[in-house]
Design a protein around this nucleic acid. Structure first.
Lengths: 165, 165
DNA sequence: AACCGATGCTTGTATCAAGCAAGTATCTGG
DNA sequence: CCAGATACTTGCTTGATACAAGCATCGGTT
């Protein structure tokens, strides 16, 4: 019997998720992350923020982290580099690899955009109670984790290929 | 003081959102909605489900509803029509407009994919308590509402243009 | 009834993200 | 030192989307 209610909940969540993805895309697009001409598009900003927050990254590590194809990351990082927001240094321990790190400018731009992003959320969640925000964040985090685990090839070193098509 | 905690919450939510979008895209891509060859891509499925659930739609109404450009909807619906999943009938009250409705086949395919989608969520939320699911769904719904309201041009008839760039 | 601006949709065009596949350089274990 | 693996790059294709221009139709005005 519970199954019915459960089904309904899953359906509801699934529905909201679909809607949410679309709306967020729109949101991202409208913000455009552009400010003083140093605009960033969504994927670029996401990569930049990963790099800015969690130190130098290898491209492959980045790709795994954000669940993007390495080629895509390569190009995006290339764009960031061209824009002067990140710098690539050859990994001393492995000359095939590069370590990507943010530049001074990159940090600046990141902070700018981060501030705008946070402000947007402040606006969106204006009516929420702190508890709601906390719970939501926690559940969301949990969900992302499940999601990441479920994604084929999301985890690299660990239990690598298994049901990977 | 609270501002700091609040800031952190918004930041956390913002971060999770970014990650979530990416992961969901991946998830959608891997599911591919394909089954017996009647595969649907994400946008197509989303439109189909809107049409299937909330009866016949005008293209423009659909576009507003899902926050997509009319041209995009036009093409997507065209694809759905070609696939035999929806049917377009000229609106008797206005011959410029079409009403899009699902066909028999469309309903079938929708149900199939819906089942798979729900199953996926059942999997993802396996460890959640019913309360968590409910709360999450509720908050998510609320968030989507704010999001929709905030989006420029999301609401048509109402308070149309205002701060629209 | 003819006209004109608004509305609903379609189609052309451009952009961009993303994946896959093939290629190059480097590394590592035998 | 070679062979296979690994890190990344580049070429190519696909798909989603927006914007702009165009066409048909509608509704109100004269």
């Amino acid at each position: 019997m519970d199954d019915d209610a459960e089904q309904a909940e899953h359906a509801a969540i699934g529905r909201q998720v679909g809607r949410f993805i679309r709306l967020s895309e729109r949101l991202f697009a409208t913000l455009k992350w552009s400010d003083a001409g140093r605009g960033l598009e969504r994927p670029a900003y996401m990569l930049l923020s990963r790099i800015a927050v969690d130190g130098p990254f290898r491209l492959s590590a980045l790709a795994t982290d954000v669940a993007l194809d390495l080629s895509t990351v390569s190009r995006q990082v290339g764009a960031l580099e061209t824009a002067g927001l990140v710098r690539r240094a050859t990994d001393p321990t492995d000359r095939r690899a590069s370590l990507v790190e943010v530049t001074e400018l990159g940090h600046e731009v990141f902070e700018e955009n981060r501030a705008r992003w946070i402000a947007t959320w402040r606006e969106l969640l204006a009516g929420w109670t702190p508890e709601e925000r906390q719970i939501f964040a926690a559940l969301f985090t949990q969900l992302n984790q499940s999601l990441a685990e479920r994604l084929p090839s999301a985890e690299k070193g660990a239990t690598s290929e298994r049901d990977a098509r």
